[in-house]
Structure formats: structure tokens, C-alpha cells
Amino acid sequence: MSRLLVFGRSGQVAQELAALTSEADFLGRGQINLTQIGEIANAVECRRPWAIINAAAYTAVDKAETEQAEAQFLNVEAPALMARAAGVLNIPFIHISTDYVFDGSGVEARSEDDPTGPLGIYGKTKLDGEKAIAAEGGHWAVMRTSWVFSSHGNNFVKTMLRLGRERDELNIVADQIGGPTPAKDIAATLLMMAEKMASDARIRGIYHYAGTPSVSWADFAREIFVQADINCTVHDISTADYPTPARRPANSRLSCLRLQDDLGIEQPDWRLGLRDVLNNLNR
């Protein structure tokens, strides 16, 4: 029986996928060079998987402003080649995208059909990647998610734990609102999507999946400190007080009703996911 193929190995979602299933092949930087055009098709043809999940991406939001070529290839060209290879075998292909495809205006949760408008190169390449995948045809799905965290790699939770133990007070942005999303829940949802897609060709297109309830970065930090029993005061600041090379969307709320309606998958409570991550880190 063929296995699931996952592009990516060291990222947060890929590591959670590896923890959830032993029936998958993972191709990280040590196994494949995604910038070599022929390697992707060869990898898929040799393994002939029953489905493909792309957990590899260029995710350095600020660096993307000056490393546009690399971001373009990893977020647009490579996923399109994966989708094409999946189409040849007529198997499901699932790709991870981001809330950064939106301009962050308003206060309502964005649906999958709402107009896009990325503010920077990272968001633009992720949006172009979605379009390139759709253009390949085949049986594809894109999961847009936001504010990913886990016990692996670099993320907001681990940064706050480090800074909170080093300092008595921190200034954290309070006018950006979104849904923190545990990578473990993303991985479990991706596996469920792949299984459903393999048996139902109607499941396709773009889906949103993000944690609930929506929260600011500042309030996210406060909850981290409460659960971790860290005595650190958080002061609210505005985005203007913390300039970055790439602009961030102020409104990263995502409506996840389509995923619930089509697959029966509900939004995860990120506070429970945070508790799980802290327990893992303590172990």
C-alpha cells in the first residue's frame, strides 16, 4: 500500500505530522532540493503516494522583502510543481497558506471568498502560490491558517517564554487581532482532510482553519504568562510603535465555517493547545 508524502520535515507542522503518523514519507532539506525543478516530480513518481501534503514554505516574513526570489520559488513555483505531480497520479494535494493573503482591514472574520490584498512579499507569494496550484487543476485543497505555535522551532509562544523569564515587563502589539493556531491541530486536520479527499472528490478548494477565540498579540502573551506562571507585565502598544520591514495585517480573523460545514471540523481552542505545548516543553 502506498504511503502519504509530506514535503517538509523540520517545520512546526511537519514535526507534528510525524508525531501523528508513522505511515508517511517526509522530504526535508536533507532529502530534496526544492529549487531543483526535476526533483519534485521524480520524488512523487518514485514513491507514488496516495496523497501529498506540502508543509514546506518560505516563512520569514520580514526577510522576504529582500529575498523575493527565494520566497517566490518556495511559495509559488515549488507548490505548483507538487500540484502538477499530484495531478499526474490523480491523488489529493493539500497546501498550507496564510492569513497574510488579506490586507487586514475591517474587524469581521474573512471568508475564503473575500477579496485578497497582501501587504508584503510573503503574503503576495503565498497568494500567488494558491493561484498557481489552482491553475494546475487536479484534486487540490489549500488550508489558510494563522499565528502557528508549537513546542518546536521558533514561534511567538517560545519567544514570550524566553523574554518573560528574562524581563519584568514587555511591550506587545495590541492592535493586531487573530487566531493563534496549534500546529498539532493543524497536522491532525491536514491528515483528516487528506483522508476525506481521497474518498470524496467534491472536497477541494480553499479552507480556513484558525484557533478561537480571536485575540491580540498582547492578550496572547498575557495568557502565555498566566499558564506558564511567569510574573511579567504586558504593556499594550500599537503597530506603529513596533515597526517591521514587512507590514502585518491588523485583522487576521478567519471564518472557518466552510471547513466545519464540509468536513465537520471545528476551530480549536488555542488556550487548550497552549496548555499542551507548555506541558511538552516542561517535559
Rank of each mutant, 00 (worst) to 15 (best):
V157H: 00
A141Y: 00
S10G: 11
A228Y: 08
A78R: 07
A134H: 13
G205I: 09
A132N: 12
I177F: 00
T212E: 15
L4P: 06
I96Q: 10
N33A: 06
F7T: 13
L257F: 09
A83L: 04
R258K: 15
L161G: 03
V148C: 11
L254P: 01
A64K: 11
H152P: 02
Q267M: 14
A69H: 13
A132S: 06
N282H: 13
E195M: 00
G87C: 07
H139Q: 03
K63H: 11
K158P: 07
E112R: 01
I121A: 13
R248S: 08
Y242V: 05
R204S: 14
G106T: 07
S199F: 14
S146L: 00
A194R: 03
N90C: 05
A56G: 07
V173G: 10
P249W: 03
N280H: 14
I224G: 08
G179D: 11
A41Q: 14
P268I: 09
I53P: 03
E195V: 02
T66A: 12
I230N: 05
I96R: 04
P118K: 07
A198N: 11
R110N: 07
D236N: 15
S199T: 15
N280G: 14
L278T: 03
F93W: 00
K184C: 10
V234A: 09
R247C: 07
I133S: 07
A86K: 06
A250W: 09
S238L: 14
P115D: 13
V61F: 03
E67C: 13
V142S: 14
P180E: 08
N171A: 04
E195Q: 09
E136L: 03
N33D: 15
A85L: 01
E112Y: 04
Q15D: 01
K131E: 15
F102Q: 05
I237T: 13
K158R: 15
G179I: 10
A64E: 07
W50R: 12
R9L: 11
L127A: 11
R144E: 05
D200E: 11
Y100S: 11
L191M: 10
V44I: 15
P213G: 08
L5A: 06
T212V: 14
L257I: 14
I186Y: 07
E45S: 11
S216M: 10
G211V: 13
A19L: 14
V277H: 03
N279A: 14
V13D: 02
R47G: 04
V61H: 08
T244N: 13
A60C: 03
